[in-house]
Amino acid sequence: MEINLTLIGQLITFAIVVWFTMRFVWPPLMANLDARQLLISNGLAQAAQAATDLEQAHAAAKTMLDEAKAQAQVLLEQTHKRSLVLIDEARSDAQEEGQRMINIAKNEIVRESLAAKESLRHQVASLVVAGATKILGKEINQAANQQLLDDVINQQL
């Protein structure tokens, strides 16, 4: 164990190696580690943010779906009510129309029967005149006896 020039050599080498490490090894590697640390923490924060966003989006979608469902329900009810109204209207219209038709038919019947009566009356009058002519053997003036005929017919019919 003797101390000699090797010591000086080692002192110089040591200084150089430490300088090299300080200059070229430690700072870039450490800066890189810090940068990666930042990158990872940012990434994690973004992932957490994304998870929150997703949750919010889910909640929003659910709300919208619920709203849409409620709206559909309302629309359905409205439609149902409307259809009932329409059916009622249609029913009353039909009834009115039917009644109108019935009334028309009734009027027609009345008018027809009146016409028939009138026609019958004429025919009965002529028949009576003709019958009387045959019985009496002479011409009867229908015009002269019209008042009488009418009274008779009106009493009979």
Binding site: V17, F20, T21, V25, P28, L29, N32, A35, L39
Partner: peptide
């Protein structure tokens, strides 16, 4: 040993990737 150390660590330090 010093050259080995400096070479290896220096090489790695000059070829770093952040990713």
């Amino acid at each position: 040993a010093a050259v080995l150390y400096m070479g290896f660590f220096g090489w790695v330090a000059s070829h770093i990737k952040t990713g």
